[in-house]
């Protein structure tokens, strides 16, 4: 557990523990109060949208307070037309959120995340459209950080790592988009590839963290799963 200002109390462990305990207790109560407070603030922001907008000083303080107490700024937008600052703040905020999501999930999906997952898992309550995502990602891509939208069988995927997919890798993801997984025999039948080619591309995708292996099938053949399946299974 994280320590709070340890040094000040180091000599007197008892005082420290006292404080810590007190702190935990307060934290618990505060969390509850904070929840209510957050709700009220969002309500307030929505109701007094125009007033907040028109007073820069107040707006600045207000938004800082929201940030400090952990209100997701995206919650402050009732819609694209109602915003607390410039017309574009909403889309900038969305861009930032997308960057953060991609960084947090990179080890799980190798830097590939489907629009489905973004919309259904992360932005479910926020009323964000595919168009919003495209707009935000276009903005992010001006920063030349390797962000790009791919299309796999008509589904949009956001790639947030600079390694471009090879044609073979893309074809495998297409196969995965149907079953959730690919395997050497599936690829041989569907793509008419040689065994060697199937195996080497699949292995390569495991190495780069794009596919997960499943060795417990009844066919005794290794399956290679696309983690995008997880979000997909939720929406089905």
């Amino acid at each position: 557990m994280k320590k709070f200002g340890v040094a000040a109390f180091e000599d007197d462990e008892r005082v420290y523990n006292e404080t810590l305990k007190q702190f935990d207790k307060q934290t618990e109560q505060l969390t509850e109060q904070l929840g209510i407070f957050q709700e009220k603030l969002v309500e307030f922001a929505n109701r007094h949208n125009e007033e907040i907008k028109s007073n820069p000083e107040f707006r600045s303080k207000f938004l800082h307070m929201c940030n400090t107490i952990g209100i997701d700024p995206l919650n402050l937008y009732v819609g694209r037309d109602k915003h607390l600052f410039t017309v574009n703040d909403f889309i900038y905020e969305l861009s930032i959120k997308i960057i953060q999501i991609c960084r947090n999930t990179k080890d799980l999906n190798g830097g590939l995340i489907s629009f489905d997952e973004l919309l259904n898992t992360y932005f479910k309550t926020l009323n964000i459209t595919e168009g919003d995502l495209v707009e935000a990602i276009d903005l992010v891509s001006t920063l030349d950080g390797g962000f790009e939208i791919l299309k796999i069988k008509g589904t949009k995927i956001l790639r947030s790592v600079p390694n471009e997919l090879t044609n073979d890798q893309t074809k495998i993801l297409e196969v995965c988009s149907i079953m959730g997984y690919a395997s050497v025999s599936l690829l041989r039948v569907n793509l008419k590839w040689s065994k060697v080619r199937c195996k080497s591309v699949l292995d390569e995708m495991v190495t780069s963290g794009i596919l997960w292996i499943d060795s417990q099938t009844h066919q005794k053949e290794m399956l290679f799963w696309d983690p995008a399946w997880i979000a997909k299974s939720l929406s089905n």
């Binding site: 707006r59 600045s60 303080k61 207000f62 938004l63 800082h64 929201c66 940030n67 700024p73 600052f85 410039t86 574009n88 703040d89 900038y92 905020e93 861009s95 930032i96 960057i99 953060q100 960084r103 903005l139 992010v140 001006t142 920063l143 030349d144 950080g145 390797g146 962000f147």
Partner: peptide, 24 residues
């Protein structure tokens, strides 16, 4: 630091309340 990551970091730490800046 990649400018992408810096963009998120800077806006989060500095620009809340004074208007976020765009990537451009």
């Amino acid at each position: 630091i990649p400018l992408v990551d810096f963009y998120a970091m800077y806006n989060k730490a500095m620009r809340i309340g004074t208007g976020l800046i765009s990537p451009q």
